[in-house]
């Protein structure tokens, strides 16, 4: 089994393996296999298209957590120029599960905050698997307040399995650090654009997710409790996670219907990881357009709209 492919993608993996094999054979001798290779490639694309056109919510959760899924750092390096990373909460430490810094989006200075899971084992440990502690959220808060002072819009990239559930996290007030961000982000006098790029898990995601515009990449997911956690509570087994994912409506299409998500940004066929550059370009394009729109709105109006939007969550449209 090819670990770069998810369970339900194995038929694609098999075709891709065949293509690779033919390419190897073809390069080693005079046989012209290119027709056959093209045919298989077409078949593989078709298969990908058909599998991805009818993904279940649980399959989307898996794509959102794909080991090859692009992380904040992948997007930051492709979208923002003149990047300076900034560190530390000024009270306790620096949390590597959250990256923060200033860069330019299409020439305009912006503050960027992103949650980062880490790809290699070593990096995952360094990033605490993308589970921020209080100092991470407080770093984010410090940077966002700074952005307000210097009239920089804030771009956040959400991708976390949740705030870190640990002793030290509780000792330093993880709840308060999240709550404080929610409160302050509701009134920061600068445009805020939030995008779920992978997994948006509960309060740990929302803590950098209050703003004027909420995007989700097509195969990202956003939930109040992980499908496994939900299944564990209701069915007493994680095996029922697919049912939980279905019931909770963890995908952008459902969340758009509920009026929570504003825009779904389409991913390349087969998911963002199949074509990172194209995905980054698409996200960049959306962010530029959205920021232009938001910057045209007078600040008072922007803040009133943000507040009204918060107050209306859950009301029938």
């Amino acid at each position: 089994m090819n670990l770069n492919y998810l369970d339900f993608e194995q038929p694609i993996a098999e075709l891709e393996a065949k293509i690779e094999e033919l390419q190897l054979v073809g390069s080693g001798n005079a046989l012209n296999l290119s027709d056959e290779i093209d045919r298989l490639k077409q078949k593989s694309d078709k298969l990908t298209e058909s599998i991805y056109s009818s993904l279940t919510p649980w399959q989307i959760v898996q794509v959102a957590r794909h080991p090859q899924r692009p992380y904040s750092s992948d997007y930051i390096s492709r979208i923002f120029d003149d990047w300076d990373e900034l560190h530390g909460d000024r009270h306790f430490g620096d949390d590597n599960a959250i990256i923060g810094g200033v860069g330019r989006l299409n020439g305009k200075p912006v503050m960027v905050i992103g949650e980062e899971k880490g790809r290699s084992v070593k990096e995952k440990v360094y990033r605490n698997f993308g589970m921020p502690k209080p100092e991470g959220y407080r770093k984010a808060l410090r940077l966002m307040e700074m952005a307000e002072r210097f009239n920089m819009p804030i771009i956040t990239l959400i991708d976390t399995p949740g705030a870190y559930p640990g002793i030290d996290s509780e000792e330093r007030g993880i709840s308060e650090s999240i709550a404080q961000n929610l409160a302050v982000m509701s009134r920061l006098k600068t445009p805020i654009i939030c995008t779920v790029i992978g997994e948006g898990s509960s309060g740990g995601a929302l803590a950098i997710g209050v703003g004027d515009q909420l995007n989700m990449l097509q195969y990202s997911t956003y939930f109040v409790i992980s499908p496994e956690g939900c299944a564990n509570i209701i069915w007493k087994t994680v095996e029922k996670a697919p049912l939980a994912a279905e019931a909770m409506g963890v995908t952008s299409s459902v969340l758009e219907d509920l009026g929570i998500v504003d825009e779904t940004i389409a991913e390349p066929m087969g998911g963002a990881h199949r074509d990172l550059d194209a995905m980054a370009a698409k996200l960049k394009e959306s962010l530029i357009a959205q920021l232009d729109t938001l910057q045209d709105v007078p600040l008072d109006e922007l803040l009133e709209k943000r507040y009204t939007r918060l107050m209306n969550y859950g009301k029938e449209a």
Binding site: L258, L310, G314
Partner: peptide, 13 residues
């Protein structure tokens, strides 16, 4: 689900 999560943002605001 997410409507509950958003009540966190709403009450905090």
């Amino acid at each position: 689900a997410l409507i509950s999560l958003m009540q966190m943002a709403k009450t905090s605001a």
